[in-house]
Structure formats: structure tokens, C-alpha cells
């Protein structure tokens, strides 16, 4: 996420050179070199760490890339074979659908709860700062650790959650062991993880809204809901776009959480594109097929990155 924001920031302009003894022509060249010198680190970094892997991944999806490739360095091109195999596999459609459900469900939950909490903490009350920092905790815990802890909490027989629900006679929910509930459970855990990120960014956005607007609204006798709809939401829009797009890009590629919680099971019911590319590449060692699924993920993210950049540009106008 941080790389996206950093990349979107314009590169610092080259400093002006005003040498007295330099002729205009050589001054120009010097300036051009200086400009390139400033741009070069960013460009080299992008080419090496973004461009190269991206191109490599695309090429790999058209190759028969097997374990022997690591020895011989040879990966014969096989046209669209990998793509055909992946798209013909039922599991791909299933994983794609589950990725969509997972992403939309997670974003909706994270955003709504995050926004509600941000508005709540914007009211400033005693201990508000402390509570706000405590809510950040899920963000600080490594994803794998949260996954393992939640796996215990959600255990059908011995989990804390079911013991608690048992008090209300609901203690037998098959959180991670039913093909129809597991995806919901995974979404709920991911919402829990994503709330802090949403809250922090939205809270920052709320702080930027001038207080006078709220004062004027209350003078006009606007209700709380009306104020929220006509002042808070419109002024928060740029921040909302950022939160949703960044949230989307980190959610759609989910892997670690699902591996820790369910390993894609039971019976592939929590398999997403992220786990599928992992399974293809690192369990079956069919790197070509893994690259195909990876490319689909990149394509989806790229589409949303374009939305993000356009939204940013519109803001600039």
C-alpha cells in the first residue's frame, strides 16, 4: 500500500542551476543530466523491482515452467496451454467468485465499522485517545498470528466463540468446518483486521473538515444525519476513495490469513485467487499455471489502480 502512494507522488523538481561561467548550451545539458540523476533512482528501482517481475510473470504464463527449469534454465514456450488449463479448471471459477465475495464483504464491513468508529472518536471525549490507539492493535499483530489465534477461537467444539454463543443456545456454529459458513467466518476475521486501517485514515479525513461548517449547519437546525450526509460524506469523498481503493488492492490478493485459518478448505470453499496461485506454484510446482492466476490478479488490481489515479487527478483539478 505504501509503495502505491509513494509512486503516485511526483518526483522532486530538479534544482535550478545558475552558473555564471557556463555557456547556455552546456548549462542545458548539465541541467538535463541533473534532472535524470534525480529521476534515475526511482526509475531504476521501478524497473528492477516492479517492471522485471511483472514482465517475467507474464512471460512465465506462456511457458512450460517446471522444476527442471531451475536446473536447465530452459522453459519452452507452450502458447496458451497454461491459460487454457487454468480457465478450464472448475476451481478457477470457484476461486474467482469467492475472491469477489471475500473482497466485497471485507471492504463493506471494514469501511462501515471503520467510518462509524472514526465519527465516534471525532467527538473527543475523555480517554478517547487511549481507546483509539487500543483499536489499532489488530493492525499491529502479524497476519499469521491473528490467523492462528482466530483458528482456535473459531474451533467448533473447543473454541471460545462457540462457548460464549452457547450461553444463548447457539453454541454449535461450524465456523471453519462447513463449506457454507467458512467463507463468512474468514470474511469476519478479515473485517476485524481491516477496521483499524479504515478508521485511522477516515479519522484523519474527518479532522480536515472545517469546524465552521458544522457550526453553520447546527445554526440552520440541521439534524445529525443531515449534517453527516451533506457535510461529512461529500467532504470526506477523496479520503473514502483512497481507503476503498487501497483496501481493495490489499484484500483481493489475500493469502496469509486464509492459509493460516483454513488452508483454502474445507473442500476448497475458501480458496481465493491468492491461495490458488500459491497452490499451483508451490504445491504442484506448476509455475506456469501459478503465473496465469497471478496475472489475473495483477490485471484486476491494475484496473482499480487506474480508477485510483483518475480519482486523484480529478481531485487535483
Amino acid at each position: 500500500m505504501s509503495t502505491t502512494t509513494a509512486a503516485a507522488r511526483p518526483v522532486a523538481p530538479a534544482p535550478e542551476t545558475t552558473g555564471r561561467k557556463i555557456s547556455p548550451a552546456s548549462g542545458k545539458r548539465r541541467r538535463a543530466i541533473a534532472q535524470w540523476g534525480f529521476v534515475a533512482p526511482a526509475v531504476i528501482f521501478m524497473v528492477l523491482f516492479f517492471g522485471y517481475p511483472l514482465v517475467r510473470n507474464i512471460v512465465m504464463s506462456f511457458q512450460d515452467y517446471s522444476p527442471s527449469t531451475f536446473f536447465t534454465g530452459e522453459a519452452p514456450f507452450n502458447g496458451f496451454d497454461n491459460w487454457k488449463n487454468v480457465f478450464q479448471d472448475d476451481l478457477f471459477g470457484k476461486a474467482l467468485w469467492q475472491t469477489i465475495v471475500f473482497t466485497i464483504g471485507s471492504l463493506l464491513g471494514q469501511f462501515c465499522i471503520g467510518l462509524a468508529l472514526a465519527v465516534f472518536f471525532n467527538r473527543h471525549f475523555p480517554l478517547g485517545g487511549l481507546l483509539r490507539s487500543l483499536i489499532l492493535l489488530p493492525w499491529l499483530v502479524p497476519m499469521v498470528v491473528s490467523g492462528i489465534v482466530w483458528r482456535r477461537i473459531l474451533d467448533q467444539d473447543t473454541g471460545v466463540l462457540n462457548s460464549f454463543l452457547g450461553l444463548f443456545g447457539l453454541g454449535d456454529t461450524p465456523w471453519l468446518t462447513s463449506t457454507s459458513v467458512a467463507l463468512v467466518a474468514v470474511v469476519l476475521v478479515n473485517i476485524w483486521i481491516g477496521i483499524p486501517f479504515n478508521m485511522v485514515i477516515l479519522y484523519g479525513g474527518l479532522q480536515e473538515i472545517p469546524k465552521e461548517l458544522y457550526e453553520a449547519a447546527s445554526l440552520d437546525g440541521a439534524s445529525a444525519w443531515r449534517t453527516f450526509r451533506s457535510i461529512t460524506l461529500p467532504l470526506l469523498r477523496p479520503v473514502i476513495t483512497v481507503v476503498l481503493v487501497l483496501g481493495f488492492m490489499s484484500t483481493v490478493k489475500i493469502l496469509d490469513l486464509i492459509l493460516a485459518l483454513t488452508d483454502g478448505g474445507p473442500a476448497d470453499s475458501t480458496q481465493t485467487l491468492g491461495t490458488l496461485t500459491y497452490q499451483n506454484s508451490f504445491v504442484q510446482l506448476d509455475f506456469g499455471a501459478g503465473a496465469v492466476v497471478g496475472n489475473v490478479l495483477i490485471l484486476i488490481s491494475a484496473v482499480f489502480a487506474v480508477f485510483y489515479l483518475r480519482a486523484n487527478r480529478n481531485e487535483g483539478k
Binding site: 534544482p15 542551476t17 534515475a40
Partner: peptide, 16 residues
Amino acid sequence: PRRRSRRALAPLTVVS
């Protein structure tokens, strides 16, 4: 300022 820009150039090239 001229000197400053030249001084900035060298480390940048090295970093690259």
C-alpha cells in the same frame, strides 16, 4: 546553488 546541485548529483549517481 551551482555547487549544491553538483554535490547532489554525485551521490545520486552512486546510489543508482
